[in-house]
Amino acid sequence: MAAETGTPTTLTLKSNDDELFSVAESAAILSVTIRNMVEDGCAGGVIPLDNVDGKTLASVITYMNGISAIPADEEKKKSYRDKFLSDKDFETLADMVLAANYLNMSCLMDAVSAKIAQVMEKKSVGWVRRKFGIENDYTPEEEAAVKEEHKWTFEGVETDDDN
């Protein structure tokens, strides 16, 4: 491995739309899925990642390189993650969370999940439905029954008209 030979090892990753990416092994093994392949000796040629498209993989690799360049300092890593995700729209975040889940990258998975959760926090049910395009398939009676069951969870919710 890299540390033993002194030369950095590079891996080639292939997205499901056949784009190729090279990435330093030391950064790529942030993904437990990739790390397992490396440890099992299956990373010699091209590593196919069947569940990730090129656009998302490019973004994930930017993250891998960025975060692995930061030494063990949780605060700095957190501020990198915040900045990295700050300009991403929901479509991108959804692609990213699926990729992170598939690649088994808990730090990216947690950061994206937390960011999506943050959007929902303290928001009314109507607002969240509109924000994410969630279709309400309850009948009015069913909805009233679910609401009644968790009545107290509606206290402190922001009013609907904030956008």
């Binding site: 969370v97 699926l98 889940n101 998975m109 947690d110 999940s113 937390a114 999506i116 959760a117 943050q118 929902m120 926090e121 303290k122 049910v125 969240v128 439905r129 969630i134 279709e135 309400n136 398939d137 309850y138 069913e142 909805e143 679910v146 609401k147 069951e149 968790h150 107290w152 969870t153 509606f154 919710v157």
Partner: peptide, 23 residues
Amino acid sequence: VLVDILSFLSLKEAARTSVLSSR
């Protein structure tokens, strides 16, 4: 993945999502 996302909310916030839709 959705359960992971909801795990970042307090119990109260997470429970409220049950009203969104039958999903």
